[in-house]
Design a protein around this nucleic acid. Structure first.
Length: 216
DNA sequence: AAGAGGATGAACT
DNA sequence: GTTCATCCTCTTG
């Protein structure tokens, strides 16, 4: 069992966290692409677990009807999306699935990136247990509801800072960039209600990855 | 106060 | 391909 006092006791293994300026950029589409190849890491109950991001979607309020904050709609749930980039927006979907988003942009811009799939990295054992699986197969972490379960992220974690050195959720750059030519862009999943916005090609996948979500 | 529906996944046929 | 789990958030009255 790995015991972790994040991030100090693991500093010799840990790579740099993404800095504030990575998140606060205005172009959420660019941030969504840049998140591919970065590592999403959690440490709950002393158990470190992580995965490399291989699929994301950008959501850009106020003009994006598919965003919960469309038209700058402020509710208790969406309020965190208006914060300065670098926080988590986690919400419950279909009463069952907890979906993890990275809040981006300067304060006041309700931009976010949904993380839809990761490739398992550290502590597959813990992730298997959380998912009630025996073997590491694609559905361990492929799909936005699956990866949060594997990493132990729940809607109660919404609002957490990804920059807090003592926080349980963060992102790392481990020097494995994904280049533009290897990014597949396509329309986002499950946003048919969003009219024109439903066609915007803001779902991004790493070409050739065996760990992206099954959604068409 | 009540009701509809959702940025999904699993287990069916 | 279809069903359904399951609950919070938001809208309406």
């Amino acid at each position: 069992m790995i015991f972790c006092y994040a991030p100090f006791s693991i500093s010799q293994f840990s790579m740099p966290r993404l800095p504030a300026h990575f998140y606060t950029r205005e172009d959420v589409v660019k941030v969504a692409k840049d998140l591919l190849g970065k590592y999403l890491v959690t440490c709950f109950d002393g158990q470190l677990a992580s995965g490399k991001i291989v699929e994301t979607e950008a959501y850009r309020a106020p003009e994006d009807r598919a965003s919960h904050a469309w038209s700058n709609r402020r509710t208790p749930r969406t309020e965190i999306m208006f914060a300065e980039g670098g926080r988590a927006y986690v919400y419950l979907c279909y009463g069952v699935h907890h979906l993890f988003n990275v809040v981006t942009g300067p304060g006041g811009m309700a931009h976010a990136v949904l993380v839809r799939a990761v490739e398992p990295a550290e502590n597959v054992e813990v992730m298997l247990r959380r998912r009630n699986l025996r073997h590491s197969v694609r559905n361990l972490t492929a799909g936005p509801g699956a990866l949060t379960q594997a990493l132990g992220i729940r809607s109660g974690h919404s609002g957490l800072s990804l920059l807090d050195p003592a926080g349980p959720v963060w992102l790392e750059d481990r020097g494995e960039p994904v280049f533009e030519k290897n990014i597949i862009a396509s329309p986002r999943v499950g946003v048919a209600y969003a009219g024109e916005c439903a066609h915007w090609p803001w779902r991004f996948r790493v070409e050739g990855s065996a760990w992206t979500s099954p959604a068409k």
